[in-house]
Simulated assay, not measured.
Amino acid sequence: MPLDAFVDEAMTLFSREPTPKEILVERVRFLHWAERDGRFDQAVEMLNAH
């Protein structure tokens, strides 16, 4: 993810009212609950494939 796009998205999330307890850009959401949802191995494979 290009740095400018990351910063823009993160700053948009920080500006929400109320400020979210956790700042996660959309691109990493698939990792957030991967272990809980039984997708951990799949997520690791996706990361290692690139």
Rank of each mutant, 00 (worst) to 15 (best):
T19A: 13
H32Q: 13
V7L: 09
D8F: 00
R39Q: 11
M1K: 14
E22K: 13
M1D: 12
A49K: 15
M11L: 15
N48L: 12
T19V: 05
D4N: 09
M46K: 09
I23Q: 07
A10F: 10
W33S: 15
A34E: 03
F14C: 15
A49S: 15
F40Q: 05
L24F: 13
E22L: 02
M1T: 12
V28R: 09
R27I: 00
H32F: 06
E26D: 09
R16G: 00
D4T: 08
H32A: 08
P20G: 07
D37K: 11
H50K: 12
R16Y: 01
W33K: 13
A43Q: 08
T19R: 14
N48M: 11
V28P: 00
P18K: 13
D4M: 01
R27S: 14
W33D: 08
F14R: 15
V44Q: 06
A10N: 05
N48Q: 06
E22Y: 03
L31V: 02
P2D: 15
L31I: 07
F40W: 11
T12F: 11
R27P: 01
P20S: 07
P2N: 08
E45R: 14
K21P: 10
Q42C: 00
L13F: 04
M11N: 15
F30D: 08
L24W: 14
M11Q: 12
M46N: 07
H50G: 15
Q42H: 03
V25L: 12
M11E: 15
V25Q: 04
V25S: 13
N48G: 10
T12H: 10
A34V: 05
A49V: 02
E35D: 07
A49T: 02
L3D: 04
L13T: 09
M46R: 15
P18C: 15
R36Q: 11
T12V: 03
V44C: 13
D37E: 14
Q42S: 02
R27L: 02
R29W: 03
W33E: 14
L13Q: 10
D8I: 01
E17T: 11
L31G: 05
E26H: 11
A5H: 09
F6Q: 08
V25R: 04
F14D: 12
I23T: 06
H50Q: 12
R27M: 06
A34S: 11
R16E: 15
F6N: 05
T12P: 03
A10C: 11
P2H: 10
E17I: 07
I23M: 04
V44N: 08
Q42D: 12
R36W: 00
L47K: 08
V7R: 13
L3T: 03
V25F: 03
V7H: 03
L47T: 00
E26C: 00
F40E: 05
E26W: 04
P18S: 09
V25A: 09
F6I: 05
I23H: 06
I23L: 14
H50A: 08
H50V: 06
P18W: 09
L3Y: 11
D8Q: 11
S15L: 07
M46W: 04
L3C: 01
E9R: 10
V28W: 08
S15T: 10
L13E: 13
W33P: 00
A43L: 04
E9M: 05
E17R: 12
L3K: 09
T19H: 10
